[in-house]
Design a protein around this nucleic acid. Structure first.
Length: 421
DNA sequence: TCTGGGGTCCTAGGACCC
DNA sequence: TCTGGGGTCCTAGGACCC
């Protein structure tokens, strides 16, 4: 038995934890650069504002409806998320975090009729202990648990937890469930479904295997199986990332080579922090920078450079050297770069590194410098010690738009809430 | 003027092997 | 003139997720 715990309007709910005055009022959270809508309260959804809508298109609605807008505050959302996951882990032997605001729990230790009341208690516990509203779906497969959680979210009568246990419940639920809302059915598969006359999840589930495998390949067949109650989608609980990306869109296009380099250096430093946190090394790095896809009046360029490192590493200084060389080779003078980033790939375990016979780098020394560097930053604060090529505070202020950022209430002592009694 | 960021898995086709 | 058959590995791009 699976329970899917899904936070309601997660980023908005995180902001409301510290702004209870916004309960019941329209609130949205914007993407980086304050560009698009990435989270909406129910009140904003009711106004017909879609996910991903560019802010400049809804300026008038925002003003008219007094919508409160927040810049994205990942320090806050990440911290609230880990509090929820930690609370959930006390309720199961097997917790698989699926995204920042979702996790699957196995409830094998419960009888079927105990599941719903048990999950209702979890909902109340998270609401009162952390402040975030969640919905829980209970079923024999992950896909059906997802379906159940949508019902729990939509109808308050469920008290936050909905279960699909019997076959009658399954058939009833699927007959009411639009095919495009099924987990695993994206835009392309939805088009195919429409052409085939499949409108609800039940329509799909009722087709036979031959029909399904003619139309879809492996992932589609797995979804069909799961809707019929056959548990077949395995989530790996490997926490190690297979690729690590840090990228940003800038407030306006950057032409100054040194400014872009300083940003890329920042991105690389964050990538390597994430890499070292999971005790991994990587052997490949992609550097990219691109002009705006929406502009035709300025020179466009998509810069992408793949660097294969001589041996797996997580050393910032070494990677900075390769990054700058590769970037300078591809950089085009006069192009306004609007977005840039670093991707690390070919990631492997940092404890077993195959050294190269021809390597001339003093890696013992690199390693000692890195350890000292990390120790200083651990003691005196993140980014206190920086490479000279990294950006200055003024450069960051000029190039990242974050005009409605809430405080990092739970992760920065300088920004903690003060209460007057 | 203004349009996000970070992932995973699958598959087709190329390169290569005997 | 006629030019096999059966594999594996790798990678880029597509599709999907949040």
């Amino acid at each position: 038995m699976y329970a899917l715990v899904d936070c309601n309007n997660f980023f908005v709910s995180c902001e409301r934890v510290f702004r209870p005055d916004l309960e019941g009022k329209p609130v949205l959270v914007m993407s980086g650069n304050d560009g698009c809508v990435i989270a909406r309260s129910n009140e904003v959804k009711a106004l017909g504002i879609g996910m991903g809508t560019p802010l400049f298109r809804i300026r008038d609605i925002i003003e008219r409806e007094h919508i409160t807008c927040f810049s994205t505050n990942f320090s806050l959302y990440g911290d609230i998320s880990s509090r929820i996951m930690s609370l959930l882990s006390r309720h199961t032997e097997s917790l698989q975090q699926y995204s920042i605001d979702e996790a699957f729990l196995r409830l094998d230790h419960l009888n079927p009729d105990e599941c719903k009341p048990y999950c209702e208690r979890i909902v109340r516990e998270i609401r009162s202990g952390i402040g975030v509203p969640v919905s829980i779906g209970i079923a024999h497969t992950k896909t059906l648990a997802k379906v159940a959680s949508k019902f729990a979210k939509k109808h308050t009568g469920y008290n936050g937890a909905c279960s699909i246990l019997t076959d009658e419940q399954r058939v009833k639920a699927l007959s009411l469930f639009p095919i495009e809302d099924v987990w695993g059915i994206g835009r392309k598969n939805f088009n195919k479904m429409q052409m085939a006359g499949v409108r609800t999840a039940l329509d799909l589930a009722n087709h036979d295997e031959q029909w399904v495998s003619n139309l879809f390949s492996r992932p589609g067949i797995a979804t069909w199986q799961e809707l019929r109650g056959v548990d077949c989608i395995e989530l790996s609980d490997l926490p190690e990332k297979k690729s690590i990306t840090v990228s940003r869109t800038f407030a306006s296009g950057i032409t100054d080579r040194r400014v872009i380099e300083s940003m890329l250096a920042d991105f690389l430093v964050s990538c390597c922090e994430k890499l070292r946190r999971q005790r991994s090394v990587c052997q490949q790095m992609t550097i990219f920078a691109m002009s705006s896809r929406f502009r035709t009046d300025t020179p466009g360029h998509y810069l992408s450079s793949l660097v294969s490192l001589p041996q797996p590493t997580s050393n910032v200084q070494e990677m900075l050297e390769y990054m700058l060389t590769a970037f300078r080779r591809e950089y085009r003078y006069g192009v306004p770069y609007k977005r840039a980033g670093i991707i690390l790939s070919q990631i492997s375990n940092g404890n077993v590194v195959q050294r190269s016979f021809f390597d001339e780098r003093d890696r013992e020394r690199d390693g000692r410098i890195q350890v000292a560097f990390d120790a200083v930053n651990h003691k005196f604060g993140r980014n206190r010690l920086r490479y000279a090529v990294q950006s200055s505070a003024e450069v960051r202020k000029d190039n990242f738009r974050l005009e409605h950022l809430s405080p990092r209430y739970t992760t920065s002592l300088d920004e903690i809430m003060t209460i007057k009694v």
